[in-house]
Amino acid sequence: MHVHFLDPYHAGGSPIHRLDARVKLALTLAFIITTSLVPFGAWAAYILLFAIVLSVELLTDLGIAYFFKRAFLALPFALAALPLIFTVQGAPLATWSSGAGTFTISVEGVERVVSIALKSWLSMQMAIALAATTAFPQLLAAMRALRIPKLLVAIFGLMWRYLFVLADEALRLLRARAARSSASRDAQYKTGGAIVWRARVTGGMAGNLLLRSFERGDRIYDAMAARGYDGEARVLPMPALQAAQWLILGGGLAVCVLILLLALLLA
């Protein structure tokens, strides 16, 4: 049994897939920063940002539904922003009184909550596009290109490699627990045991997983040492960016700046 569903990468040959991972990572970050910088209620800018997101999604050949479905995962967090419709001062949209007091919903409050949810939704889709079209080894190379310390990138790589191995082990542990979890035929016994007991069983599984990982970590070090590992992270240099890729990078950054300027001018 292999945990394949963990990896969100979808192999493909679309223009977004073919774009250099360094350019993709940089532009994704630029897009998200731009989205964060656009003022609340700057609807024109949001529409432009959405047009960009939509274009990228269509260019990936993965189908828009894939992105929309995954992006809705972040929406529950928007609950944290919801109370702002009452607390932000502004033109009243609706007011009502109840036993607990008077509630006023302000236009500015609604504007802000909708803006926050939109920003989050747009940023999320761009991040999904990056993960869905970029194989992780290329993301690692892009991280190195962005000057993330090599040692940290090496640990990221090891983690990703063993994520699948350990997720398989965790699933086996869960299966073993499920196989032994049964209800007594005598209905008077409650199934599942007390919460503390359940937590202890789960904790034991986590401990088991950690123990195996410690042992595996030692064996991996042996395997690395056997091939001359000396504590330094070494990789082959990346090929230089081609002119076309530079152009896309520059163009993308320029669009981000333009959208920001537009948002400011209109404000």
Binding site: L140, W160, R216, R219, D222, A223, M224
Partner: peptide, 11 residues
């Protein structure tokens, strides 16, 4: 090594 998952540690 015996377990190739120990030997193959790279992405």
């Amino acid at each position: 090594f015996q377990d190739p998952d120990d030997q193959l540690f790279s992405p």
